[in-house]
């Protein structure tokens, strides 16, 4: 039961990319192509799960005064692990090397991605190991879905392709530029908020209570 709550939280109610709007730097930079969004999402999910896991294990051992430095240390370690892993896998597969190169400076920047620190601080340090791992997983999935969708939209409109497969010849170059990134992301947030509010309102007037809004902030 708790798992379903966490899943809804991570993917919909507190979607880190579209509701909490955290980690925006990576979102804007890696949403130019769907595969980049997927790759970055996977990397962030990996770090989220691992850091939530370790921090939850150590949550009673780390003194409160040094918790932020300790969290950052742990997160930085896992980001380094992801970097090493991606480079290693990239030497075996050109597709992964493509993602590694596309991420560029944003790979080490995962360590300052607000999502990970926020979840560590607000969830993993107070909850059991199992729940923390789930939370990391679902937050990561929410982020990945949002980022991949955004990437897909920008890629289809800007490059006429999806995941590198060319669809048609109609390209609006605007969507591949930084300006396109900002605007598309902004519209995504607006659209998401609009649909979300609509659904919440519909529920208030009766109907299935799937998206019960969280009154207590996690």
């Amino acid at each position: 039961m708790k798992v379903k709550e966490l899943a809804l939280d991570g993917i919909v109610r507190q979607n880190p990319a579209l509701k909490l709007v955290l980690g925006t730097c990576s979102i804007l930079a890696l949403s130019n192509e769907a595969i980049n969004g997927l790759g970055m999402g996977a990397a962030v999910t990996f770090v989220l799960i691992c850091s939530n896991l370790v921090i939850s294990i150590l949550r009673n051992i780390i003194p409160d005064k040094v918790r932020i430095p300790a969290f950052i240390l742990i997160i930085a370690t896992f980001v380094t692990v992801v970097k090493m892993l991606l480079y290693y896998l990239g030497s075996k597969s050109a597709a992964i090397m493509g993602i590694y190169n596309a991420m560029g400076v944003f790979l080490p920047l995962i360590v300052v991605n607000c999502i990970i620190l926020a979840r560590a601080e607000s969830f993993a340090s107070h909850n059991t190991i199992g729940l923390s791992v789930m939370d990391g997983l679902f937050m990561g999935i929410g982020y990945t879905v949002a980022l991949t969708l955004l990437g897909a939209v920008r890629e289809i409109l800007g490059n006429g392709s999806i995941f590198g497969v060319a669809l048609w010849n109609f390209k609006i170059a605007f969507f591949t530029t930084p300006a396109g990134a900002f605007m598309t992301y902004g519209m995504f947030i607006a659209l998401f908020t609009f649909v979300y509010d609509r659904i919440v309102r519909k529920q208030k007037l009766g109907g299935a209570k799937i998206l019960k809004p969280k009154t207590t902030e996690v």
């Binding site: 530029t177 990134a181 900002f182 605007m183 902004g186 947030i189």
Partner: peptide, 23 residues
């Protein structure tokens, strides 16, 4: 501003226009 555009969306769009200028 339209209700759902307030806050982040409108900032993003403004940032986008700035990005166009810097482009």
């Amino acid at each position: 501003t339209p209700k759902h555009m307030r806050g982040f969306p409108i900032s993003m769009i403004t940032a986008g226009i700035m990005a166009m200028a810097f482009y």
